[in-house]
Design a protein around this nucleic acid. Structure first.
Lengths: 157, 157
DNA sequence: TATTGTTATACTCTATAACTATA
DNA sequence: TATAGTTATAGAGTATAACAATA
């Protein structure tokens, strides 16, 4: 059913012309990582954005939503649904500051800490599998190179 | 305006907890490349998907839309608007095959060839700037590592 | 006047189901 | 029945404008 009379149509379609581009290879690698990450977080009821938010809140207890948005490089309005969800699920508390009642102080609850610990372990395991074909030195240099490329953007790390 | 009485709120919000993850660094590097790519292609009236489509058609003249979709890893319906646009702009021709009148044979027009050549040069220049902090050897090993990670996904290249 | 959190909105990208015409 | 192209649709993800409360 395949190569019967393929005279006009290209018999083997290749993406070789896109392979020399860094962006193409980076995007394809990201697709793999992303799909794996989604599948890893799904059983925990987390998405990339909620996992990232939990992680940053866990390391910066008391931060505001605006600070969280900056750290995650997303716009403030897009975080409202995220903090709503995390708060409703009892993973994060939003306390009004007495000194400035406009802002919330975001903190993990005990349940939030536990879920974050489990999710972090799951993501580490999933990344270890993707890293598997690379040596320790290669992994370090890969991340260093990605950060160099990232720094070409805003100039900031 | 910064550190006046930051007692409850974290003074310095950091994403350090996400930095050890490969996925986070890859995504941030992709954000930079993507933003640059969009800005590079915009003056030519191209998006990532239209540029990629032109490139693959240019290397595989006569391929079908289904083959193009496979090469670009997108679903067939999402290519309709793309080929419509490229056809309307006179960059690509869609010829019915006599042997199978269901399928189109996609080919670049002379104008499509010219635009592709210009766009390819522009993207090469934009990537060279992002690559700048990396040595030739590093660039090769970066792409090789990205392809190893990609191969962990489907097993296919 | 400026900022925090919020609402409403819109745009892009992408995926699925179902149709048509051909095979 | 199976496939190519198509239509309609829906879901993420993300961006902007504008508002109320507070500073």
């Amino acid at each position: 059913m395949v190569d019967r009379e393929e005279t006009t149509t290209a018999p083997k379609v290749t993406d070789a012309a896109l392979r020399p581009f860094l962006g193409f290879n980076l995007r394809r690698a990201w697709n793999v990582i992303h799909a794996d990450l989604v599948a890893t977080l799904e059983p925990l009821g987390l998405r990339m954005i909620t996992f990232s938010a939990l992680t940053v809140i866990g390391e910066n207890p008391g931060l505001s939503q605006a600070q969280l948005a900056t750290a995650l490089s997303v716009e403030r309005p897009n975080l409202v649904a995220v903090t709503d969800e995390l708060s409703t699920r009892g993973l994060v508390t939003r306390e009004r500051l007495a000194s400035d009642r406009r802002t919330y102080a975001l903190k993990l609850t005990a349940a939030g800490e536990r879920l974050l610990a489990r999710a972090t372990e799951a993501v580490r395991g999933h990344e270890a599998a993707l890293y598997e074909p690379l040596s320790d030195g290669e992994r370090q240099s890969l991340i260093a190179m990605l950060q160099k490329i990232e720094s070409k953007g805003t100039g900031r790390s």
